[in-house]
Simulated assay, not measured.
Amino acid sequence: MRLVILTQDDPFYLARNIDYLLKKLPPYAEVVATVVFDVSPFGKRESFKDKIKKTYDIFGLPFFVRYGFKYVTSKLDSRNNVRKVLADRGIPLIQVEGAINKDENLEKIRAYKPDLLVSIAGNQIFKRKLLDVATYGCINLHTALLPKYRGLMPSFWVLKNGETHTGVSVFFVDEGIDSGPILVQNKLEIGGMSQAELIDVTKKMGMDAILEAIEKIHSGKYELIENDASQMTYFTFPTSDDVKAFRAAGKRFY
């Protein structure tokens, strides 16, 4: 099975988790190429200066200093570089210009004859032409129990809203947002975890769920779980008021 991974250049969590995924892939699965998007933590493309200002404005000085330091140290450690992890394994990087759905970009991906596209923090909306490039379409990892908590930063919202459990979902991508039928879903008790701890745990869980999904697609033996739109909740990036409510509820970022 020929896989193309669609991901982003996140310096905090993705590199080591993608490395874990690559190590655990079964013999019949091969990553033949990757697309690495620019990182966009707020769900849209912004200048680096705008990202810095927004982080400070929303989360405050202590958070800004802590994650600013973590960002710098992560950038200096090649183990946190998604492109480096992929290059070390000899996996080609597909250079795309602009929106992934442009015909010229689709042709670049199609040249690798993928059986399956695997989106891990893919931060663009995928259109039907892209989804049809691969034989089995595209799967995506979402670190929440769909159909609840569609959208951005579910680790923040499940904590703010006092949920006792969360989890991970791997679903077949359609043209909506986190709306396709679910292939794998695994549940997790939150307990006293901070947001950083929750992200760590669910990212690792997510890699195992992707492996499980690949096996199901390879065998052809699976039953899809309905991603019921009537039960959905959807969240965007938090505001400073949301952050105040998060802290007032006794929740921790780290």
Rank of each mutant, 00 (worst) to 15 (best):
F64I: 03
V72H: 07
L145D: 00
T55I: 04
G137T: 07
C138K: 00
Q95N: 14
Q95S: 14
P27I: 03
Y13G: 03
Q124M: 14
L106D: 07
D19I: 05
I120W: 10
L93K: 13
Y71L: 03
P27H: 08
F37N: 11
F59E: 04
L117Q: 01
G122R: 05
E30T: 13
V31N: 05
L131Y: 13
N123Q: 14
E104F: 05
D50Y: 06
P114M: 13
R79W: 04
P27Y: 11
Y56T: 00
V82G: 04
Y112M: 01
I120Y: 03
G60M: 08
Q124Y: 12
T135C: 09
G98I: 15
S78R: 12
A121N: 13
C138W: 04
K23T: 09
A87D: 14
G43S: 10
D88Y: 06
V118M: 08
L21G: 11
Y67T: 02
E30H: 11
R45E: 15
R110P: 02
L141R: 09
Y112N: 04
K54G: 03
K129F: 01
D115R: 00
V85K: 07
A99C: 14
Y20H: 07
R16Q: 14
P11I: 00
V133H: 06
V85F: 04
I100T: 04
D88N: 15
Y112C: 01
A121M: 13
S47P: 00
D115Q: 02
I91L: 13
L93H: 14
T135R: 15
R16A: 10
L141A: 09
R45C: 03
V85T: 13
R89Q: 12
A29N: 11
K113M: 12
S40M: 15
P41T: 10
L61T: 14
